[in-house]
């Protein structure tokens, strides 16, 4: 574990009037650093927050953006919400699966990409829309879906 995590935890605990509120911000921050939240990390976070590991694990597992398995360098979320579906998101997902040779929910063996479904991303005006490391991209024409993968994105 990195020593700065302790510093972050203290910072965040101070930022919120109730220290417990610092849990999710801390998880976000550490995930950005580590890419995902291993059980060791959750254990460490529990320790830093003065909470039980059970508690932290239970919270983390509730939220789809806390990754409890390793993810690729680029996490591609394809919105499958109704508006995006009407605009062809099925096809976008299909093309990406073909291109990457993986199914939705999986990570390429080289660790470059993780392909995930997203529920309505509140960007239906850009339908069909996707996020690469949570940066919006859209509208994505199915024929240009592959371009999504080479998109330069800032680290989230």
């Amino acid at each position: 574990m990195k020593p700065e995590y302790q510093v972050w935890a203290e910072e965040l605990k101070k930022e919120f009037p109730n220290a417990n509120s610092a849990l999710m911000p801390l998880l976000h921050r550490i995930q950005t650093e580590e890419g995902w939240l291993s059980s060791e990390v959750l254990d460490e976070v529990a320790h830093l927050m003065g909470l039980s590991t059970q508690y932290v694990e239970s919270v983390a597992s509730f939220y789809s953006l806390f990754y409890q398995r390793p993810v690729g360098k680029k996490v591609v979320h394809v919105c499958v919400g109704l508006s995006c579906m009407l605009a062809g998101s099925d096809e976008v997902m299909h093309r990406l699966e073909q291109k990457l040779g993986i199914s939705e929910g999986e990570t390429t063996p080289d660790g470059a990409f993780t392909l995930l479904e997203a529920e309505c991303l509140a960007a239906c005006d850009l339908a069909p829309v996707a996020q690469v490391n949570l940066r919006f991209q859209g509208p994505i024409h199915p024929d240009e879906a592959e371009a999504l993968l080479s998109e330069e994105v800032s680290k989230q």
Partner: peptide, 9 residues
């Protein structure tokens, strides 16, 4: 003694 948890959603 919170030793059981709800995991997932």
């Amino acid at each position: 003694e919170p030793q059981l948890l709800l995991d997932g959603r």
